[in-house]
Structures are given as structure tokens and as C-alpha cells.
Design a protein around this nucleic acid. Structure first.
Lengths: 191, 191
DNA sequence: ATTAATATAGGACGGTCGTCCGAATTATTT
DNA sequence: AAATAATTCGGACGACCGTCCTATATTAAT
């Protein structure tokens, strides 16, 4: 029901929508209040400050990320438990849900100057690389040339590569096909 | 000489310093004017608007990037002309000049919502991947498993991986060693 | 039914922001 | 030397911001 919604939830929904559309730097509490059809002062009543509200939105975004990725990994565990699903997940998400990456990269600029935001992002990266590491550890076929590196190092490499390619693609004005192709190349390299 | 400086240059220097210290989102024209010891109104006299001033700073940052990277590549061309220098360049820059990456990732959040900034960043990425592509094309030893992909795809992959790992490292709260190690792994993979 | 607690609304506060204007100063040209 | 142009400055403008305060409405407890 849309009538049983408490304002706290309405505000969070509106805030997430505003942030995803206009970015952290370009939204005001008045924007969010208007979007949520709620008095401006209610944002402070429920969340105390703009920063705390932003942190709640980020928790939500991070939850979306991890749940969706784990769903994709789990789904594959019936077939083969390798990491190609990670690449597929990223590729599909890039095409179908680009806003997710926009919010992530937008958050990054906050994390550059704020320890609390940086900590939240670090937790996300730790979690994601942990999921990837499990895939590597459970995989039977490890390429010889990677034997010199630990699975934790490799998982960081894969996470970084995937994020970087997504970064490149999200910020490319021409939507260069080579960038998406390089995700396939990644999949081949790490079988 | 510090007395022969015209205000236009003073302002640019101050703006670059302010942006690199506090980020695009957290600087005001008054900050820059104070840093440059110049009247606030002079910023508009020389640059017209805050956006135009930011664009000048970004041009400068991009110039720094490309010049330094090409210097590193050229330096190596006397020895072997492979791309390991790219990885070394990134690794050294991450440790010695982390602000460079902060400014880059900070700019990215601007580019997410502004076509003009996005275009500037795309040009930078095109240029960087072009440099990498040259390294690949001139390299005699191409690993077999990469034969299926064009050098332009591979160059995009390498650029993305390098950027992504730098992204991971810059935003990691714990300065995880695995992340820097993964740059070495990259170097091994692409010899 | 009365009281207490919670939720909602509207408005005002001090502050900062980008922009712009008019005057004063300096440099250049005639 | 006079006139013109380019530079520099201080200050003001309206707009927007996050925060907070007080009053009203709603709900829960007694």
C-alpha cells in the first residue's frame, strides 16, 4: 500500500531517486522533501542531518549491490562455480542498470574527502573481493601464470579490473564497443 | 619571478591547489581568490564563470597526466618498448603522487552529470588507451590467449584495469597491500 | 476523557554561494 | 599631456543552503 508508508521510508525512497538522478553534489534537502511530498523539517526529524541521510542511502545502495551480485553467483553454483558470472553480472548491469554505477562512482568522490564514507566503500570492496576470492578458491582450474599470486591478490585484481572497465564505460562519451569487449577478454583471461 | 606573475596565472595556480586539496565540490571562488591573493571579482574578469575556470584546471590536470606518462614510455623505448612501464608508472604515481588520482576520480563525478566534462575525460581516456595500444602493436611478444582480441580492445582492458586498481587503492581505507600487488600481477599477465 | 507522546508542518535564522556593477587604479595609445 | 583602454578592487544582489524553533495535528496511554 502506498498509504501505509511512513514518512521515513518515503524520504529514503525520494532521496535515493534524487541522488541517482542528479548526484550527491547537486541535490538539496528541499529537493528530497518535495520529491517525497513531505515538509522539509521532517528530514531532520528522522535523520538528524544531511550527512546521516546520505549514509542511509549509501547503505541501501551497497545492499542492492551485494544482494544482486550474490544472487548471480549463487544462481551459477548449480552449474559451474567460476567467476565468469561476475563478468556477466557487471556487463549486464552496465547495460541494463547504469545508474547503479553512477551512484557508486558518485559516492567515490565523497569518500575521497570523508573518512566515514571511505570506510563504507572499503567495506563494500572488501565484501566484493571476498566473494570473488571464494570463486577463485573453489575453482579447480587456476591458470599457471597466476600461481605466483595469492587468491586474495587475484581477487583484488579482478575487482579492480571490473570496476575500472565499468568506470571507463560509464564515463565514455562515445560508448566505445571496445570497452564492453574488454569485459569478455577479462572473462577469457581468468577463464 | 613571483612579481611578474599576471593574475590569470595566479588564479589558475591557486585554483589547482584548492581543488587538489579540497575537491571540486568543496571549493568556492572565494577560497580560490583568497589563496591567489586576488579580488573575488577578478575570477570572473578572467574566466567568466566557475565552470569555465574548472575546465581550465582540468585541461591542466590532463596535460600533466599525458606528459608524465609519455615521458615514462619514451624513456623506456631505448630499452624495451613494452607496457610494463605503464604499470610501473601507475604504481609509482600511486605512492608518490596520490593527489593526481584524487583529482581524476573527483573530476569523474563532475563528468557523470555534465557532457562537457565527460567529453574532456573521454578525450583523456582515448589518448591514454592510444598510447597503450602503440605499446601493444610494437610489442613482438603477444600472448596467445589474447590473439582473439584486437589491440584496441586490449588497450581498453589494460587502461580499465590500471584505472580500476588505482581506484581501489585510492579509496581503500586500509591501504591493503594486495591491491598494489595486483598491479604486479597485471604486469606479469601482459608481460 | 484527559493526558502524554509522537508525528507533521510551516517558517525563519544566519550563512555561503556565484554573479555582477561602479569606481579607482594602472597601462597604453594618440 | 590628454585620452583611451585594460586591469584591479570592494561591495552589493538575489538565490539557495542546512538547520532549527514553535505551533498544530495525530496517535497512544492513562
Amino acid at each position: 500500500m502506498s498509504s501505509k508508508t511512513n514518512q521515513s521510508e518515503l524520504i529514503l525512497d525520494a532521496a535515493y531517486k534524487c541522488v541517482s538522478e542528479k548526484g550527491y553534489a547537486n541535490i538539496s534537502l528541499r529537493d528530497i522533501a518535495k520529491e517525497a511530498n513531505v515538509a522539509l523539517s521532517q528530514l531532520h526529524y528522522y535523520f538528524g542531518s544531511k550527512k546521516k541521510l546520505l549514509q542511509e542511502i549509501i547503505k541501501r545502495m551497497i545492499g542492492k549491490y551485494t544482494i544482486e551480485l550474490e544472487k548471480q553467483i549463487k544462481k551459477s553454483q548449480s552449474d559451474k562455480k567460476d567467476i565468469s558470472n561476475v563478468f556477466n553480472f557487471i556487463k549486464e548491469a552496465l547495460e541494463r542498470n547504469p545508474e547503479l554505477f553512477k551512484i557508486l562512482f558518485d559516492l567515490s568522490s565523497l569518500a575521497l574527502r570523508s573518512d566515514s564514507f571511505k570506510l563504507m566503500l572499503s567495506d563494500l570492496f572488501d565484501h566484493l573481493s571476498g566473494v570473488i576470492k571464494e570463486c577463485i578458491d573453489e575453482s579447480s582450474s587456476i591458470v599457471d601464470e597466476f600461481k605466483d599470486f595469492s587468491s586474495s591478490t587475484l581477487s583484488r585484481l579482478i575487482l579492480g579490473s571490473v570496476l575500472g572497465v565499468a568506470f571507463e564505460y560509464t564515463l565514455d562519451a562515445n560508448k566505445n564497443e571496445d570497452i564492453l569487449d574488454s569485459l569478455d577478454a577479462l572473462s577469457v583471461i581468468f577463464q
